[in-house]
Deep mutational scan, measured.
Amino acid sequence: DETGKFLVLALYDYQEKSPREVTMKKGDILTLLNSTNKDWWKVEVNGRQGFVPAAYVKFL
């Protein structure tokens, strides 16, 4: 149950560059965990948590 969690859509592919980031593919649906930083949002994708560039995702 994803109640209270926001979902975001990956607009572009992103390859993680550090262990704190996660890789996503364009079209992936991600669970948004934290968006307090304007540049990097914490998400969960494929069972992994990490950061992606905020400009690469949008709210569903």
Rank of each mutant, 00 (worst) to 15 (best):
G27I: 01
T3W: 12
A54T: 06
F6K: 14
L7W: 10
D13Y: 04
F51P: 00
K42L: 15
I29K: 06
D28C: 05
K26N: 04
T36H: 12
F51D: 04
D13V: 02
V45K: 13
V57C: 10
K25S: 10
A10I: 02
S35I: 10
A10C: 10
D13N: 07
D13L: 02
F6S: 12
A54S: 12
P53V: 02
L33N: 02
Y14A: 01
E44W: 06
E21Q: 10
K17V: 09
V57E: 00
E21M: 05
V52N: 00
G27R: 02
V57P: 00
L32C: 09
K58P: 01
K58F: 09
K25M: 09
T23M: 04
F51G: 01
V52M: 02
K5F: 12
G4I: 13
V43E: 00
V57L: 15
F51W: 14
T36Y: 10
V8Q: 01
Y12G: 06
G27T: 02
Q15G: 07
E21L: 05
V22I: 15
F51E: 04
K58R: 13
R48F: 06
Y12S: 10
D28K: 02
A10K: 01
Q15L: 13
V43Y: 00
R20K: 13
R48S: 06
Q15T: 15
A55E: 13
T36C: 15
D39R: 10
K58E: 14
V8I: 09
D13C: 04
L33P: 00
V52Q: 00
G47E: 06
P19R: 09
G47Y: 05
G50D: 00
D28N: 06
A54C: 06
V57T: 04
Y14N: 00
K5R: 13
N37Q: 09
L60M: 11
L60H: 08
R20P: 05
I29P: 02
Y14E: 01
T3C: 13
K58Q: 14
K25C: 09
G4S: 13
W40M: 06
L60S: 06
Q49S: 11
I29V: 12
S35L: 07
A10E: 01
D39M: 11
L60F: 11
K17M: 13
L9I: 15
K25E: 06
L32T: 02
P53W: 03
T31W: 11
L30W: 01
K38S: 12
F59Y: 13
K25P: 01
A54V: 06
L7V: 09
E2W: 03
G27W: 04
E21I: 03
V57D: 00
K38R: 11
G47I: 03
A55W: 08
K17H: 08
A55L: 10
K17Q: 15
K26G: 05
S35P: 07
T3V: 12
K25W: 08
G4L: 12
V43L: 03
S18G: 13
R20V: 12
A54H: 04
G47P: 01
W41E: 00
E21T: 08
T31M: 12
W40L: 04
K17Y: 04
D1R: 07
T3P: 13
W41C: 05
N34P: 03
S18R: 08
L7H: 10
V22A: 05
K26T: 07
R20W: 15
Y14M: 01
E21H: 06
T23F: 04
K26I: 06
L33W: 04
Q49W: 06
T36Q: 14
P19N: 11
R20Q: 14
K25F: 09
P53Y: 02
T31Y: 12
T23C: 05
A54P: 05
D1M: 13
T3S: 14
